[in-house]
Each structure stands twice: as structure tokens, then as C-alpha cells.
Simulated scan of single mutants.
Amino acid sequence: MRFIHTADWHLGKLFGQRHMTEDQAYVLEELLALCADLRPDALVIAGDVYDRAIPPPEAVELFNTILTKLSERGISVLFIAGNHDSAVRLDFGAQLLRSSGIYLAGVVRAAEPPVILSDEFGDVYFSLLPYGDPPHVREAFTLDEPPSFDGALAVQIAAAREQIPSSARSVAVAHAFVIGGQSSESENALSVGGSDQVHAENFAAYNYTALGHLHAPQRAGADHIRYSGSLLKYSFDEAHQKKGIELIELDAVGHASHTFYPLAPRHDVRIVKGTIAEIMSDGFDPLAHDDYICVELLDTDAVLAAHEKLRKIYPNLFTITRPNINVNRLSSTERTYERGKSDLHLFSDFFTEVTASEMTEAERGELIRVIDLMEQEVRAE
């Protein structure tokens, strides 16, 4: 069995006030070309198909186009809802799509049947485990108490394993934050305060686990439990990452091998470091100047009209950071927030600045509760 593992497409993404749909369409054409070369039996998308619960029309149209082309080529497509997706909206047409070889799981259900695909060695059972926060898992499984994130995942997996013969080859498709994973700025926290993390041991019974949520390609506790990473770089702390897909091959006994295939974007995401004089000198940067750029300006003094000067060199300049200068010496137009801070940290900093005191544990707990409720409301839209 040969299948492609991908995740976190985030169709409709807005990055630096720029809609990424054209960039996503460009790289998805590369993915289709890879499918023609690699001839997989299936393509698996481990959640976050869209970037928000109500995606823009052009994002929906792009996904429809890709699904249609994959189906026409006889490639089965399996995908689940991630924390950015609207589970109910993504679930639309699930039964009808199965006849075209497209299998999806948006809403958490207590008895979600596995998808069974076959090769020359027999059947392979795919457990589609859509993102389910504790309240939704509690409701779906009629639990007395809300579980932890780890407990919620364990409940989903236990129900899924009951429908798989013990000797069968099996694959899990899930959207979760496995303990020890490398996170990125562009990922929305599943919860506040670290309670969203789950144990890799939950997936021990599967021959391979295709994960989504973390944007860096990486193993998650074992070589057969992996994140494919996101389709594109969606923040500047991902500039060093290689984006692509994993080709997974399951042999007759269920051993999973993986091969990473990179995808080349239309515009790379890069950080350029130097003083204003260095950056403006001839031959300083040999790479494409129309990439999406963050300039880390190393001057210790204020630079007059820095944005205007740098935009002449980099037309897709997104932001400028100033690590070597005191923020009080900068004009308001030059100041930038520290990248990568969560809503909790940003509000805590604001609270301290306004009140000249740290938040109490009770205040922090109440803030965590409110942020979690807001995230749940967004996902329920």
C-alpha cells in the first residue's frame, strides 16, 4: 500500500495581509504532478484543510478542483477536520463522496467506521480521527465527565480499534499535539496552558499514524508516528523548514517506510539579516528578491524611511524587526510586536504594562477559561 501523507493546507490563509490562495494553488499543482509520478493508492490529509471555519469561496473552489483531479486519476482521498476547520461544514456530503473514492470525517462520532482499502497483500484499515476537543468527545461518547485532551483521544482510538481485526494492517489519521513536538508561530493552540498535549503511546497499535497540527515535518515519539508538516511556510519562524509530503509504503506485514518529497513554493519565506548599508549593497542577497521577506535590521541607530528603502529591494517585504535597538528609540511605525507570543502572553504583557503588576493565579485561570471558550465558539461556527 502506497499513500501520500499531507496535512495543514490552511486553504484561504491570510499571511501578512496577503491571501495565499494563488501560492497554494501553485504548490498543489506540484502535488498533483508528484501523484502522477509516484502513483499512490491514496492521499491522506490529516486536518486543517481550511484556515478558518468559514473559508473564502476561492479556497472552497480550489479544494473542489484538487479533489476532482485526484478522483479522476483513481486516487482515493481520506481527510479529517482539524481545529481550524468547521467540523459540520467539512462533513457535508460525506456519504455521497464515498462513491467517488473520497472519504472524510468531520464530526466526532462514537462509531466512526474505518475506511478499508486493499492491495495485493489484503486490507488496510484507516481510522479517521477528526479533531475533537474534550467537550465534543464527551457529547459524542456520552461520558459522565469531560476528559482531558489525552483522555479524549484515547476514547476515540479505543472505539476505532474495536472495529479493526487484531491481525490487520492499520493506519491512524489524527490532528493533535503530541508531547515533545516542535511547534510554530502559525499554529493556533488547541487549548491554553499546555493541557492540549497527548501521548504518542495512544497510537501504539497502528502500523503508521499520519498526524496534522504541527507545521514542521517531524517524527512524534516513533518513526512510524509522523507529522508531514504544512503545505507552505505560514510564519517566519518556519523559514528554515522544508515543506513537502511523505510517501508511505506499507509492506505485507505492516512495516511502514517513509520518503519525504519537498515542494517548491512560488515565493519562499525568508529572513534577511544585516545592516541597512549591507542589505542595500550590490550582491548582498543572491536569492530571489520577490520572496516573502522579514528583514532583521541590525543597525543600532534609527534608520530613516527603512520600509521605503527596503521595499525597493524586496517588493514582498512583510515586516522589519530591530533586535539591536531599544524600542523606546524607535518611532511608532517601526515598532513590532514580538513574534510567536500566544494570546495569553500578549494579554499578560498588556495587563502588566497597564497595571504595573503581574496577574494573579486566579486572574490567569479566568483568562485561560475565557480564551478557551472563545476558541470553542470559533470552531463551532
Score class of each variant (00 low, 15 high):
I276V: 15
K243F: 05
G181H: 06
G221P: 06
P265R: 02
L96N: 01
L62C: 05
K13F: 04
R270T: 10
A152L: 03
H345S: 13
M20T: 11
L143P: 12
D196G: 15
N207E: 07
E246H: 11
H215E: 14
F15K: 09
L31A: 06
Y125D: 05
E308M: 03
R329F: 10
A110L: 02
L304H: 10
H345N: 06
R219M: 13
L287C: 01
V269D: 00
D285N: 15
Q376Y: 09
L298I: 08
L70D: 09
R270K: 12
A174K: 05
A189T: 09
L263C: 10
A216N: 06
Q376D: 10
H175F: 06
I116R: 12
E353H: 14
D343A: 13
P57G: 14
P217T: 12
M359L: 14
E29C: 03
L43K: 04
L97T: 11
I179M: 04
L373K: 03
C35W: 07
A158K: 07
S342W: 06
I313E: 08
H215L: 13
E366G: 00
K312Q: 08
A216T: 13
Y208E: 02
L34C: 02
A154V: 09
K13A: 15
L344M: 12
E22H: 07
S170P: 00
H224N: 13
P57Q: 11
D37I: 05
R169S: 04
T68A: 06
P113W: 04
V178W: 08
I248A: 09
T142K: 12
E358N: 10
A111Y: 08
H345A: 14
I179R: 05
M280C: 08
A159N: 05
A189M: 08
Q218V: 05
S186N: 05
L70E: 05
D23P: 01
R18L: 14
D251G: 08
H199W: 03
Y292E: 07
N207C: 09
S235W: 05
T336P: 02
P113T: 00
P286I: 08
E58G: 05
S332C: 02
T209F: 00
S99C: 00
D282E: 14
L38E: 10
G106P: 09
D223F: 02
E246C: 03
L14T: 07
A220N: 02
E22M: 11
D282A: 10
L128M: 07
Q17I: 00
A288C: 06
A160F: 12
V272Y: 04
R73S: 12
E249S: 15
L232G: 06
A210M: 12
L104R: 10
V198N: 01
Y103L: 01
A7E: 00
V370K: 00
S257A: 11
K13R: 15
S191Q: 03
G365W: 06
V49K: 06
Q197T: 15
